[in-house]
Design a protein around this nucleic acid. Structure first.
Length: 569
RNA sequence: CGGGGCGUAGCGCAGCCCGGUAGCGCGCCUGCUUUGGGAGCAGGAUGUCGCAGGUUCAAAUCCUGCCGCCCCGACCA
């Protein structure tokens, strides 16, 4: 397309409200504009990239045996009542009423709709398995949208759902999707890693997240340097420590006066001890009941693990009142000795013998506390957050923590929705069975943003060829020189004929402007037609990524570009 | 929802403390010159100063309320 005809508003200045490079570049390159908080318009250049990515997703989904559908974005509350999520989902679900005063919501995801569709049509095992997918706009009313399309309220998502007759078949569907995801992100040339993840409120038995490695990522992942173990930080198991039952003799427990010493740091300073000698007692409210959770002073509680362990719906740190009711003291002085609550301890406590903890009395702590002697622990469990250099739960190697962007997520749902919504079929024996489901999402806009995070330099975006909005940009140095203009016109015609996606920068701008825009929008190959080379019958082709310049005879340029481009497809 | 910041030309900002004709850079329009990395000269257009009240002879500026946006946290997947 001729640049002069395009709606491609690039900007020189960095937008002040954009923090992430991908966000800045998407705005500067004229890919997106914000309409309102967390809601973006895609401009032609941005939308071309989106469609390229969607096409890759479609190809791989189809290749994996999935069929494309298109489900409604407005959904009736009834379905959500049925699944139970009308109550459970929270404020992220945008709810409203139609003119008949019927409750509706905007789909943040489509398990309910697809389950309803499938239960009405699929009656027998002969119709299974089925994998259906769609590419649809979702709406989640995020509390704080940020980072442009990376964390928007309205966003494009590919979601797929599998229905199988039993666990074994469901595993096969899961594997198909997992493999498709591997191919999708590989085709985009991304550095990514599938990691084990918590399945969260969507529910279900297990799941993997596909994380694009980027320092700007919102999620923390950990992986083993020796084996292939990788997990979301929230999911990462911590190996149960080996305990050597040494017959320690611990001095009798005693109270120490610790006025206004509430934090771990204060306590360490005050008693001249290390955080690892302290036991932190945190009182949680689990569905309204107090639970005392014990972890080592230098460890962090992993609330997801705790929540999963307790099987509760609502979990939060207890308020002053509950803490006082359970411990008899104010916040900061809770301890396990004599506390009126269920006591759960992290495995790390197993190896501790002589510890310091709150005394359940304001301004006092206890020391020389011995677990089992001075208080009982109801249960031990893995409750803490994994840390850098902790041993790998799988092989014992060293754990590394890095940041990533979650671009895809595959869940094995089991019967969570099919059971609640009665998606059943008759099996070979004529017996009624509940379908086993899986669901599989990819954030479309987010993936494109993640690609930019991994593919840019100080001048702008560097598109991998498969996602590039155009493959070639022709830059005539000066259109007023007739021979330059006619050479550029001619080449443009040749590239169009070959079906090579080309921008012809026919604007009346100085070359510097054109070069900078070409770099900014990241077109893989830039063809420069200027007086010096033209005089000798050649032109220059510059590779955006490597910066390498190749001088090619004009008549061979189209063929050259075709060869280079085809070799990468 | 808590804390902080911002809202003035299309974009980025100054002016506000100390009330008195609204300014700068970029961009935009016209003309001439220029043309291998964001040109030069000359001329020109553009504002409900976020909205609504209040104080005042007079409000971008002071006061009150509201709205929007951004950052940190909490929350959420």
């Amino acid at each position: 397309m001729r640049y002069s005809q395009m709606f491609l508003p690039t900007t020189r200045e960095v937008p002040s409200d954009a923090e992430l490079v991908s966000h800045q570049l998407m705005i500067r390159a004229g890919m997106i504009r914000k309409l309102t908080s967390g809601v973006y318009s895609y401009l032609p250049l941005g939308y071309r990239v989106i469609r390229k990515f969607e096409q890759i997703v479609r190809e791989e989904m189809t290749h994996a045996g999935a069929e494309e559908v298109f489900l409604p974005i407005v959904q009736p509350s009834e379905l959500w009542q049925e699944s139970g999520r009308w109550l459970y989902y929270g404020k992220e679900l945008l709810r409203f009423r139609d003119r008949h005063d019927r409750e509706c919501c905007l789909g943040p995801t489509h398990e309910e709709v697809i389950t309803d569709l499938v239960r009405n049509e699929i009656k027998t095992y002969r119709q299974l398995p089925k994998i259906l997918f769609q590419i649809q706009t979702k709406f989640r009313d995020e509390i704080r949208p940020r980072f442009g399309v990376m964390r928007a309220r309205e966003f494009g998502m590919k979601d797929a759902y599998s229905f199988d007759e039993d666990e074994q078949h469901s595993e096969i569907s899961y594997k198909k999707m997992y493999d498709a995801y591997m191919r999708i992100f590989s085709r985009c040339g991304m550095r990514f890693r599938p990691v084990e993840a918590d399945s969260g409120s969507i529910g279900g038995s297990y799941s993997h997240e596909f994380m694009v490695m980027a320092d700007s990522g919102e999620d923390a992942v950990c992986y083993c340097s020796s084996c292939d173990y990788a997990a979301n930080l929230e999911k990462a198991e911590v190996a149960r420590p080996q305990v050597n039952e040494a017959a320690d003799t611990v001095e009798p427990m005693e109270e120490v006066y610790t006025p206004s010493v509430k934090s771990i740091e204060d306590l360490c300073r005050f008693l001249q001890i290390k955080p690892s000698e302290i036991v932190k007692t945190l009182v949680f409210s689990a569905d309204g009941r107090p639970v005392a959770v014990l972890v080592r002073g230098d460890h962090e509680i992993n609330e997801i693990k705790l929540k999963n362990y307790l099987h509760c719906n609502f979990l939060e740190l207890a308020d002053e009142e509950m803490i006082r009711a359970a411990s008899g003291a104010s916040k900061g002085f809770a301890g396990a000795v004599g506390i009126k609550a269920r006591i759960i301890a992290d495995y790390s406590l197993l190896g501790m013998n002589d510890v310091v903890m709150g005394a359940n009395r304001d301004d006092f702590h206890l020391r020389h506390v011995k677990i089992g002697r001075d208080f009982r622990v109801d249960e031990f469990a893995d409750l803490r957050m994994i840390r850098q250099d902790d041993p790998c739960p799988k092989c014992g190697g060293k754990i590394t923590i890095a940041r990533g962007i979650e671009v895809g997520h595959v869940f094995k749902l089991g019967t969570k929705y099919s059971k609640a919504m009665k998606a059943v079929f008759l099996d070979r024996d004529g017996k009624e069975k509940t379908m086993i489901m899986g669901c599989y999402g990819i954030g479309i806009g987010r993936t494109v943003a993640a690609v930019i995070e991994q593919n840019h330099d100080e001048n702008g975006i560097i598109w991998p060829l498969v996602l590039a909005p155009y493959h070639v940009i022709i830059v005539p140095v000066n259109l007023k020189e007739k021979n330059i203009a006619s050479a550029a016109d001619k080449l443009y015609g040749q590239l169009l004929e070959r079906g090579i996606e080309t921008i012809y920068d026919d604007r009346d701008e100085r070359v510097g402007v054109k070069f900078n825009d070409a770099d900014l929008i990241g077109i893989p190959y830039r063809v420069t037609i200027g007086p010096k080379r033209l005089a000798e019958g050649t032109l220059e082709i510059k590779d955006r990524r490597s910066g390498e310049v190749t001088v090619v005879p004009i008549e061979r340029a189209a063929g050259f570009l075709q060869t280079v481009i085809d070799s990468q497809k």
